[in-house]
Design a protein around this nucleic acid. Structure first.
Length: 587
RNA sequence: GUCCCCGUAGUUCAAUGGAUAGAACGAAAGCCUUCUAAGCUUUAAAUGUAGGUUCGAUUCCUACCGGGGACACCA
């Protein structure tokens, strides 16, 4: 992950109190071994849980410096650590790990925290004064919202939620392309095809489909030089804000497009705080470029360019030979506009797909040269594509997968599945299908590493079994169902059982890891860590569910297991919400 | 050509430089008169190649092989 963003998060937030305590204690012990030397060691959860709850590699790190056997060092350190309130057992293992088993009381107290803090459990407050803008979505008007935008929207929303969870004030921003050749093409296409008489009564997504077809049609005809010239004329009119039949049509199409886009975003759970249409920023773009010819930009073949070679970057055109600003100039103007609208912005994050990585390196470099206020405050984070059979589908030739089609198909598949399994009335079935299909879609997208491409199979877009959103949701529903069946539960009286089974303990311990995971998922831009965690939590809960009866258990066991169920449900709900996934009580 | 990203079971994905490389789907076999079987329990199966750094490398470095992308008037 980008160094810049890591620097931004560098602070003293306590993420895991146990790690904090152990690291401090070990640091003190090390001081008795040597005087000034810095030792890099960590306290972490061992990959193999049977080894302990926490482990440290400090002895191996010291072995080279002290020129001693790591096992000996480990034993010496282990002897000096004393924390009888917290530590159950300390064990030294080859090649020199020191493993700690923590007392179960600690995990019980953490469970109590969950029950008390409820939806606030796992959230942080330290960064509340800082304001971050996250730009994501970035669709075009005059064209349908496609699968790439869907990925941007879902990824962006989770980043927003994760940052809010870290305690930041987040501004959700959309920058959409409502000007440029694609709008002229679509306008030309609609002029050819005409608008059906009853068009006003059409559903907004059906309208968009019609509009998108016009775009595809125009793109195909664009190879014809005569038509190309016609479309370029329309483009010129739009830029010059002429008032004629063509530009009025362009405006109408824009309105229909925005209705479609608002609906799609709303369905995904996104309401933007700030919208930047390209038409609002392109005018300043020209000024910025022309005022900085000489120091940053230079003229070449009639165009104005940034020669990135001296900065180890590529060359980019900012004003064409014809005198038009390019998208790169608009991105500069957008940067200035953002900081003008929010002068107290601490950080801007622009999310785009990976192929723009090098491009944004140049944009950010130039912004920093133009004004010091951008220094370390303008960041680009790339996300991977959605691929079918390892291939990207082209939007220009009409091969793009429409966002609405994906959402509708996921919904239909889910509804069919539910019909097979359960007997819900139509209204309930539709609501469950909506939530479950979105959970499937979002979980699929977010469970991959952020910058990597996703190879999806269109036939099984939404998985219902195994590592999937519906699986996690289902586990939540089961947990809630227990509470509903059992009735009374006194959260204040949670007591540790004398005899606790392995699956109960596994679940209890896993719950306590939640805050650390949300912290990492946010600061490392890695929602997939949270997906992995929630899936593991759901698995552990299902094992517990299969092995430990709750409702019919003796009173003491019952109360403890109820607490576990309620705590699990709470953490699942909190985690899912950070992925932008809603929960339901039945499915 | 220059630069960037990616190569892990048949497939889709995990693994802050750590201990026996985890899951899911698919395949094979079990578990519903007890809280929702969208579940649980078993079995088989993988780090592209060659070096290097390190006590320790899937992870870091170098080269190569393979896949994708960016690189002048289109976003």
């Amino acid at each position: 992950m980008s160094m810049k963003i890591q620097e931004f998060f560098k602070n003293n937030v306590v993420v895991d109190p146990i790690i904090e305590v152990l690291e401090q204690e070990i640091t003190e012990i090390i001081k008795t071994f040597l005087l000034d030397q810095e030792v890099n060691f960590i306290v972490e959860h061992p990959s193999e849980e049977s080894h302990g709850d926490y482990a440290t590699n400090v002895a191996m790190a010291l072995a080279g410096i002290l020129k001693k056997n790591p096992l000996e060092i480990a034993n010496e350190i282990a002897k000096k650590i004393s924390n009888p309130d917290l530590i159950e057992k300390i064990e030294v293992m080859t090649p020199g790990f020191i493993n700690f088993r923590i007392k179960n009381d600690y995990f019980i107290s953490e469970l109590k925290n969950i029950l008390e803090q409820k939806e606030d459990y796992g959230s942080f407050e330290q960064e509340v004064s800082k304001k971050i803008m996250v730009e994501f979505g970035q669709p075009n008007t005059h064209k349908a919202f496609h699968i790439g935008h869907l990925k941007s929207a879902i990824s962006g929303l989770s980043i927003v939620k994760l940052f809010e969870n870290l305690g930041f004030k987040v501004i959700k921003t959309n920058y959409y392309g409502d000007i440029g050749m694609h709008t002229a093409k679509t306008t030309w296409g609609i002029l050819q095809k005409g608008i059906p008489d009853d068009f006003d009564n059409w559903d907004k997504h059906k309208k968009m489909k019609y509009i998108d077809d016009a775009y595809v049609y125009a793109s195909e005809k664009f190879e014809d030089k005569k038509i190309e010239a016609e479309i370029k004329e329309i483009n010129k009119d739009i830029y010059k804000k002429e008032d004629n039949e063509r530009t009025r049509l362009y405006e109408k199409i824009k309105v229909w497009s925005l209705e479609h886009l608002d609906a799609v975003f709303a369905e995904l759970g996104i309401i933007y705080d700030k919208q930047y249409p390209e038409t609002k920023v392109y005018e300043n773009a020209l000024k910025i470029v022309e005022e900085n010819i000489g120091d940053i930009f230079s003229e070449s073949d009639g165009a104005i360019i940034y020669d990135g070679e001296k900065d180890g970057l590529a060359t980019w055109v900012f004003r064409t030979g014809e005198g038009n600003v390019t998208y790169s100039a608009k991105d500069l103007a957008l940067g200035f506009q953002k900081f003008e609208d929010y002068p107290d912005l601490n950080l801007n994050i622009t999310l785009t797909s990976v192929e723009q990585t090098d491009y944004f390196k140049a944009i950010i470099k130039i912004l920093e040269k133009l004004d010091n206020k951008f220094k370390k405050k303008y960041i680009h984070i790339p996300f991977g594509w959605m691929l079918r059979g390892g291939k990207k589908t082209s939007s220009r030739m009409g091969g793009s997968v429409k966002g609405m089609d994906i959402l509708e198909e996921a919904f239909e598949v889910t509804q069919t599945k539910i019909k097979e399994l359960k007997d819900y009335d139509e209204k309930e079935r539709k609501e469950i299908s909506r939530v479950v299909s979105l959970a499937g879609l979002k979980f699929l997208i977010l469970s991959h590493e952020f910058h990597k491409n996703i190879n999806y199979d269109p036939k099984k877009f939404v998985n219902f079994e195994g590592f999937s959103g519906p699986y996690v949701l289902y586990s939540y529903v089961r947990a809630k169902s227990i509470l509903q069946k059992s009735g009374k539960f006194k959260s204040g009286e949670v007591e540790l059982l004398q005899i606790i089974s392995e699956c109960e303990l596994n679940l209890l311990k896993w719950l306590a890891r939640y805050p650390q995971i949300t912290y990492r998922a946010g600061t490392e831009i890695s929602p997939h860590l949270l997906c992995n965690y929630l899936y593991e939590l759901a698995q552990r809960f299902n094992q517990f569910y299969a092995n430990c009866p709750v409702v019919n258990a003796p009173e003491k066991e019952k109360q403890f297991r109820l607490a576990l169920s309620v705590g699990t449900a709470q953490v699942l709900k909190n985690g899912l919400s950070l992925l932008g996934i809603e929960t339901i009580e039945n499915m």
